[in-house]
Design a protein around this nucleic acid. Structure first.
Lengths: 318, 318
DNA sequence: CTGTTAGCGCGTTCAA
DNA sequence: TTGAACGCGCTAACAG
């Protein structure tokens, strides 16, 4: 048995070629397939890593997950992915499952809502996860006792505000997303701060969902209230695109009557017209790096990624 | 030991409440976490299912994967996802890994290129996978000895052709994607067949990649050759959107000078302007159903899903 | 109703 | 260089 094990799996010193051959033949003949569970049990270590996303159909998460999967593939790690459908309970349950699976590491993507109780329970599960010896990295969620990858949302949004002001826009409306979502809040705050540098403040800040429909609804509300605004900033690209649809339906020309900007620079949306001014995040690289940190382990580290403003036609002054 | 096992895990008849309590306390005190690997080994069965996609960042795959994950979540199954990055070798290797993991079932999404040798090797691995007792379903790949979920690409494309002809378009260009890809070929063939019913045939059929860039490049070529075409059919939405960008850059008005249609009805692209005429596929439901069939097992069955033409502004006659 | 025993399939000592 | 024995953590069959 040990001999067979040596030639078929472990890189241990292998027997002489002739015996190797015999073992391989026998394996083929018997239709042998190594049992990863048994291997894991014997070695008490697996090559499984987990990814937790809120919604894999959202291109933001898909892009980051793609980076994680690429990095995992390069290291011959198997990926267990779970979509939490934005349910904190599910997230905790999945993390616990990963612990039971003795996953080597996990990456949690996306920021959580700031419900104190939920957050505490999530933190507990995270402690347990790390306590089991596995590695963990979070993307876009600070304040947890694990590696953290964070885009500098505030700085990116502030820079966007500066550039828009530089283009001549003055009367801004902000489609702010949910107030409890750190990512949304930081982008909104950064934008407002950027405006403040020029002595401006937004005409209106409309909360809403962090989704296409949220952006659409907020834009509809904006039109209904006939607010005096000349440029809209939506805290992510899918919201911006939803808003553009609403504006079009309302007969508002973009950017002729109203400029529109988003955040993320989602690849799938780079062909919309007018081209969406946005803030680019290195999503794939962030995912990649998150996995590296998670595998690496060690003391919690935070890495911040600088976003980059991309000006396109949706905010071109005419 | 058995008593503890009974109260903590298996639904076997449980001991009296008092003892249950004692076990739970001890477990909590010791920080006990069930070892899923050991459970799997002892029960010789897991609750892991696999998903194989070509590229999770492609919204088509993300939508189907989303359906699979929803169905898995409802059944308390853990999902192992692999992105093959369109590499057949990787695909085979992953399927083999899933076998080693003793996965209960797997879903393979997307059609493979028709390279006879690769196809045979994939078929071999599929046989081995099924031979291990696991279930398997393929989405958009026929001709394999497993459950198959197939959109009726030909019928959908043919219907699209009929409706476009009905709107008054006559001189069609087809951005056909790769000839070796069954999905692309079927859509192209169906479209051509639909045109034939009206006594028409396409002015030009341009091959290319099945991606945004493929559509873009094909449209550029079309413009360069100054072909006399009044409507473009791209065999998927991302190609169509890439083509629209190229047309815009070339100063061609859509749909004023050229109509454009796609295929899939990708959710993220429903807000592009002009709204993209396309053929809707129930992607999430297909993914869902694929998992059900894979879990269910039994004799290979094929289920076909009827697409539905969605007319939007990109083909509105002016 | 509870505790004991024997594997599940493997990697890893330790002797030979 | 090879083979025998043990243990990884758990469940299922059995005995008490």
């Amino acid at each position: 048995m040990a001999t067979a094990s040596r030639v078929l799996n472990g890189g241990d010193r292998v027997p002489r070629p002739e015996l190797q051959e015999r073992v391989r033949e026998a394996a083929a003949e018997l239709g042998y397939t190594p049992n990863a569970q048994a291997q894991a049990l014997a070695k008490s270590s697996t090559n499984v890593v987990g990814i937790l996303v809120h919604d894999i159909e959202d291109p933001y998460f898909a892009a980051i997950a793609n980076g994680v999967m690429r990095a995992a593939d390069e290291r011959n790690l198997l990926v267990m992915m779970a979509s939490t459908f934005r349910d904190a309970e599910r997230e905790i349950a999945y993390l616990s499952s990963l612990r039971a699976q003795r996953a080597r590491a996990a990456v949690m993507i996306g920021s959580r809502r700031t419900d104190a109780d939920q957050l505490a329970r999530t933190a507990n599960e995270i402690e347990a996860f790390l306590g089991s010896g596995a590695g963990l990295a979070l993307v876009s969620q600070s304040g947890m006792p694990a590696h953290t990858i964070e885009p500098d949302n505030r700085a990116g949004a502030a820079q966007l505000a500066r550039e828009l002001v530089g283009q001549g826009w003055r009367k801004f409306g902000v489609l702010a997303g949910p107030e409890q979502l750190a990512t949304a809040r930081d982008r909104k705050d950064g934008f407002v701060a950027g405006l403040a540098e020029a002595g401006l403040e937004p005409v209106v800040v409309l909360p809403g969902d962090f989704t296409r429909d949220g952006g659409h609804a907020a834009a509809v509300e904006l039109l209904d209230r006939k607010l005096d605004v000349d440029c809209l900033f939506a805290v992510n690209d899918v919201m911006a695109v939803g808003a553009m649809s609403a504006l079009r339906a309302g007969g508002v020309d973009v950017p002729g009557q109203l400029g529109v900007a988003g955040f993320d620079d989602i690849a799938t949306l780079r062909d919309v017209w007018p081209g969406l001014t946005t803030v680019r995040l290195p999503l794939e690289q962030m995912g990649r790096r998150a996995l590296e940190l998670a595998i690496e382990g060690g003391d919690p580290r935070t890495e911040t990624y600088a976003p980059e403003v991309v000006l396109r036609e949706s905010t071109t002054r005419q």
